[in-house]
Amino acid sequence: MIDTQSSSGSKLVWVFFLLLFFAHQDFWLWSDDSLVLGFLPMGLAYHALFSVACSCLWAFACFRSWPEKLEQWADEAVDPDDNRSAS
């Protein structure tokens, strides 16, 4: 499907996505057994923050590259030429 809108926003979303993708591996923390706030293992604290960062990324995506035109297209009546079905 061709979606022409907010291309700069979309590119930024996928750049941030790739950054998080690589940040997930966090090899520098693999043997760190220190406790954050006295109870949370470092590796777990890092990945809990990672989850928060994911939410921020998708919030950014929803507000910068939301597929408005796709929604409009879905709400339009079906073109009779497209109404044939294999099911």
Binding site: H47, A74, V78
Partner: peptide, 27 residues
Amino acid sequence: MASWSGLIHSAVFFAIGIKLWSFGKKY
């Protein structure tokens, strides 16, 4: 599982789910 899911699940909802919803709605 959990942090990969946070990144990948939402990506799939955003990139695939919304499109499939639009096809479902349309057809």
